[in-house]
Design a protein around this nucleic acid. Structure first.
Lengths: 337, 337
DNA sequence: ATGAAAGCGCTAACAA
DNA sequence: TTGTTAGCGCTTTCAT
């Protein structure tokens, strides 16, 4: 009948001490005589004892688990955030439960299971304003937003400084002499699409270029939507000399459509994206883009969350990270400048 | 003092029944009078009671959580497996804890935390033979491998039928009349690279083509390694007329290098990959590839794992999925054939 | 159909 | 420094 795993008490019995002493040993308490400790450790080793994390969670009232909810787990941007967040969590002894919620209803259920049932100690929500899911976001629970700063002013967030990044991307095209610059956005219900559009507008306006609403086409982050966007411009007979796509995948779609239409990039059409995903330098031509450090976004989010959980700090903060212009041949014949 | 959450007993008290009856209600037991049930449900609603998942795990001795360990979470292939696995798990009321382990030591620690400390009920390991990590894989624990079938013959697995897929990819090139076909592999310590090389060899041998070791170059799945591979062939002055790259990213690298070297794809060099990742149809030229249903791999793995956990079945099984040839312009001028 | 008793494996608080 | 006594919030017997 030695089939079930040994418990704290089994170890205590073997070592001839109280179970509490064993608890002290496994928790690294100083109040244990070296000889007692040795005795206990020997018993632990002999029985192959491993503490039960669930029982510990139960007694402590905390799970040492965090959750990260994302629209999906495969999108390179999301996956990078999650990986960064997971690594940081593990470094602090926490686990990360990452889940995808495709729509508000799935999100609601997930939050109920995770937060309502006390399965986790804190929550990271990627793209909280992607749809109506923000209605189901728990207040009064350790929470960090990723990808958009909170509308309510007591929730922490980490995101790209979208307005600034878009401004700089547009600025790059302006500096190259372009005046006919189109914009392909992400879904406009997402804050980051709005903010990037804002940066684009500011750059144009500062350059004294009249703003033309028809130069903006809404995409959905996919390459296909980028392709469609350029096709629309072609159909309308209003092909710009430059395109700022709000992410690299759409930029790739734009370039692909240009190729099929016989439009040369960059000589007839300059293209810039955002992200610098791993394949961007292998596009044809290699893509100029605003490189962001996405894993860092995840790391910072986890750090904030653990701060809230452990130090009980409630300092609201909205961290905005920058991106770096990486010039490649999609905006420059030589790839230099 | 109404600050802490209500428990089962609080609800019981309010409803005027025993806590056990409340337990029966939240667990959907039939042995409760409708009127009693109504009473209890009213109390639950009034107090906003939600059962505590940790306490439940504690009492039941199971966590309703699975883990998936992958070399990383960002690689499109891995992320797709994880997403498929996570969705399937949730459909069965389980959660998925996905973690990355970059090396065997990290893997060992992770397994100890997850399995040793009983944090999860079952484990999925992606690419178990990526390095020496297989030494630390727990026996006698619900376990499924993804990406390679188990060397020991009592572990379940789900993977692509690598040998067959590679055979078919090579076959496609042969059918186009190629006889000088190079192979760019993944890391050769991974089973899937070996198996894909095997399928390549079989196709060549069946076609009566002498096998030439120098036509095989080992890559590491990155686009850069595909690029380097083609550059090597060029340097050696032995440029093939076709390349089978063991994944799409390396195929992209090959095409990128070809472009820079002035080698036309597909007229001077045909290229085929494996995966059909979202961007493959936007490559220049669009990439011919063996499309696999990666999320399904994750779903099947989870299903197997839950079978082992719930039905206690121990039927070993190695599920091998097929891939589908998708012909695009990287092997065919017209994209038709 | 309902309730009472016991315990899951641990930590917390207090006592010795 | 060590042990004792109580739980954490639930499920699982076993009575009734």
């Amino acid at each position: 009948m030695t089939n079930s795993r040994p418990t704290l008490r089994d170890v205590a019995r073997l070592a001839g001490v109280s179970h509490q002493t064993v608890s002290r040993v496994i928790n690294g308490s100083q109040d244990v005589l070296p000889e007692t400790r040795a005795l206990v450790e020997a018993a632990i080793a002999e029985m192959g004892y491993r503490p039960n994390a669930i029982a510990r969670s139960m007694a402590q009232g905390q799970t040492h688990t965090l959750a990260c909810i994302s629209p999906n787990l495969t999108d390179f941007t999301f996956a990078s955030v999650i990986e960064g967040a997971e690594v940081e969590a593990r470094q602090h002894g926490y686990f990360m439960l990452s889940s995808s919620a495709v729509d508000p209803e799935a999100f609601r259920e997930l939050v109920d299971e995770l937060v309502g049932h006390r399965r986790v100690d804190g929550l990271i929500v990627i793209n909280p304003y992607a749809d109506q899911r923000f209605e189901f976001i728990p207040k009064d629970f350790p929470l960090v937003f990723v990808g958009a700063s909170a509308h309510e002013k007591n929730i922490c967030s980490v995101s790209l400084d979208d307005e600034k990044v878009a401004y700089e991307a547009t600025r790059h095209l302006l500096d190259l002499g372009h005046t006919s610059i189109a914009l392909v956005t992400g879904p406009m219900e997402e804050d980051c699409s709005q903010d990037r559009a804002e940066g684009y507008r500011r750059a144009l306006s500062e350059a004294g270029i009249a703003f033309d609403e028809s130069m903006i086409i809404e995409g959905d982050w996919t390459a296909t939507s980028g392709q469609d966007a350029l096709l629309s411009f072609i159909e309308l007979g209003r092909v710009p000399t430059a395109v700022f796509a709000q992410n690299d995948r759409m930029a790739m779609g734009v370039m692909s459509a240009a190729r099929e239409a016989g439009i040369k990039v960059p000589s007839q059409l300059a293209v810039i994206g955002v992200d610098d995903m791993p394949l961007s330098s292998y596009f044809d031509p290699p893509l100029t883009t605003m490189r962001q450090d996405i894993p860092r976004i995840g790391r910072e989010a986890t750090r904030m969350l653990l701060d809230m959980i452990q130090k009980k700090t409630t300092n609201t903060c909205d961290l905005k990270l920058n991106a770096e212009l990486v010039v490649r041949q999609s905006t420059s014949q030589k790839g230099g400048d």
